[in-house]
């Protein structure tokens, strides 16, 4: 079942045309790996989906409902269902790990402190950071910050998670940890779009690979087809 559809997305930054008609769809429970060179607009595409960037033309549909033209207030409900995991984690640096993960719960639910505490303990167990809830973001390593950022994005049980380079800059062990968390979330039926340069992780996690090149999707197929594609652009990308 299709839950998200992007139709003919165009986005310019001044004279720089980032997207020149990007179209694809995401199905329920599916993970899409969005690959592409640096500066091709992968992150901009993710930001456009939840309205952090405004597209110039095209449609973004969530459950067949257009969301690209909504105001900030109207987008609030969709941002609970479509969550975004930032590349840097983007943790609030003035509050600790517990409060960072609790933030969406306090804002959007009427859970008691006890219920919030239980949910956060479960989440900390999933991201393998039990007992670290009182640490401040500045006390965490880059990998830990990313995992806390993922936990915060996940705490409201969204339908879709947009991962912006979650493994970038991590050592192999931390990369494995992050990918393992993403696999567990996928097993729970979560749909996701995974922007990355990390091809092995994308191949192990994703049901479909998309390549964004010069503002357009030039490849949209299974990981297997991606590995054995005869298209020179795809080959070049895979080999690189």
């Amino acid at each position: 079942m299709e839950i998200l559809r992007l139709e003919n997305i165009h986005k310019n930054f001044g004279v720089h045309h980032v997207h020149k008609g990007v179209s694809f769809a995401l199905n329920k429970g599916e993970s899409i790996g969005l690959l592409g060179g640096s500066g091709t607009g992968k992150s901009v595409l993710l930001r456009s989906i939840i309205g952090l960037e405004r597209i110039d033309s095209g449609n973004i549909l969530f459950h067949n409902e257009r969301i690209d033209h909504l105001t900030e207030d109207q987008l609030k409900d969709f941002r609970i269902k479509i969550s975004y995991s930032f590349q840097s984690g983007a943790l609030f640096d003035s509050i600790n790990v517990f409060e960072n993960i609790a933030y969406p719960l306090r804002e959007h639910t009427k859970l008691t402190e006890h219920e919030i505490s239980i949910k956060i303990k479960d989440m900390l167990k999933l991201i393998d950071l039990e007992g670290k809830e009182h640490l401040m973001p500045s006390d965490l390593s880059g990998g830990m910050q990313k995992r806390v950022g993922m936990a915060r994005a996940m705490i409201l049980d969204p339908e879709i998670v947009l991962y912006d380079e979650p493994t970038a800059g991590l050592d192999p062990q931390n990369t494995l940890n992050v990918v393992s968390i993403m696999q567990q979330l996928k097993a729970r039926g979560l749909s996701s779009i995974f922007v990355t340069h990390d091809i092995p992780s994308a191949l192990s996690l994703c049901d479909r690979i998309l390549i964004l090149h010069q503002g357009k999707i030039i490849f949209n197929d299974s990981p297997l087809q991606f590995q054995f594609s005869s298209d020179p652009e795809v080959k070049k990308f895979f080999i690189s």
Partner: peptide
């Protein structure tokens, strides 16, 4: 951006 992405203003 994170405040916005988490559905708050």
């Amino acid at each position: 951006d994170a405040i916005r992405a988490l559905g708050t203003s």
